[in-house]
Simulated scan of single mutants.
Amino acid sequence: MLKLYHIPLSANSRRVWITLLEKGLPFEEIVLKLDGDQYQSEFLEISPFHHIPVLVDDGFRVVESLAILDYLEAKYPTPSLMPTDTKAIATVRMVELVTINELLPPTIRLTSQALGVLENAPQKVEKAHQQVLTVLDFFESLLGDSPYFASEFLTLGDIAAGTVVPQLPSIGVSLDDYPKLKAWCDRLMARDSWQKTQPSPEAIATSLPQIKALMKAYLM
């Protein structure tokens, strides 16, 4: 059976979790704690970079969330989460990589500011806010008239971006100027996989001290 080592509050973990649910795959969920499980020797044996999530399939390990998504799509192609048109494939890849490289870093900074982790740094916060808006402009244009990125059906791009964009209003980034993205978020949040993996306020509150510590370390 597939084994998923992850932290439910992590966007990186959640995108793999959602993919497993969307594909209807049985898996063993091994939940790591935010207080340092990823640095324990047992976990470092399967993830020497202490990154989460990790997928283990009959002894074969896959690290890095996008690599895990590719693995699941290749091994379990039904239902498909990747279009076949070349331009659509490129769009999905762009959304995945822009989410990881361009959206997550400033989102973490804005989240840190909202949680009071950062010292007062208005210029850095404004820069992060503008970086997020640049991504939202890009995503709004990519959606066009499609319900999902480059497709009539859910794709890996939607799963990657969909673990970050719907959370932006909670850290002060409004989606009111992005009607297509806003409707897309509503579409995602109505899916069972998003509802099942959405962290509860209680889980967030319980983990808040560890979340703050991790974000402070990330930004140092």
Rank of each mutant, 00 (worst) to 15 (best):
E45H: 07
S170W: 05
D176N: 13
L97G: 01
L214E: 13
L115R: 12
R14L: 09
Q195H: 03
Q113Y: 12
L118F: 04
Q167H: 13
G36Y: 07
R15A: 00
G144E: 10
S174D: 07
V98W: 09
V92Q: 05
H50T: 08
K127Q: 14
P147N: 06
L2S: 01
L69M: 10
R191A: 01
D186H: 09
R109L: 14
L115M: 15
R187I: 05
Q198H: 14
L44E: 11
S193M: 02
D176G: 05
V125H: 03
K23R: 05
V56G: 05
P147G: 10
Q40H: 14
S151F: 12
K182S: 14
I211V: 15
P166S: 00
V16N: 01
N120R: 04
L72T: 06
A67Q: 06
S47L: 01
D176E: 14
L44S: 11
L55Y: 07
I18D: 00
L110V: 07
R191P: 06
L25W: 12
L219R: 10
A114L: 06
D186E: 13
N101P: 00
L214P: 04
P199G: 02
I7P: 00
F43I: 10
R187T: 14
A11E: 10
S151R: 13
S10F: 04
S146I: 05
A150F: 08
G172E: 02
K124T: 09
G36A: 03
T86N: 15
E42D: 14
L136M: 06
Y71A: 11
G144F: 11
E126T: 07
T206A: 13
S146P: 10
S41I: 02
H6Y: 11
V62F: 09
A160F: 02
R14K: 11
S112T: 12
E73R: 05
P122W: 01
T91A: 11
H129W: 07
L2K: 02
M94G: 01
Q210Y: 14
A213M: 10
P106A: 03
L154P: 01
E22H: 06
I100F: 07
L181C: 08
V54F: 04
S41G: 02
S207I: 02
L32M: 02
H50L: 06
P147Y: 00
L188F: 09
D58K: 13
L34R: 14
P147K: 07
W194D: 00
V98K: 09
D176T: 04
L2Y: 08
A160S: 15
P106C: 05
L103D: 04
T19Q: 04
Q195V: 05
G116K: 08
L136S: 04
E22W: 08
M215R: 15
I159P: 00
V92L: 03
G116V: 09
S207V: 00
H6K: 07
S10P: 01
Q123P: 00
V92E: 03
L44R: 15
L143G: 06
I204W: 01
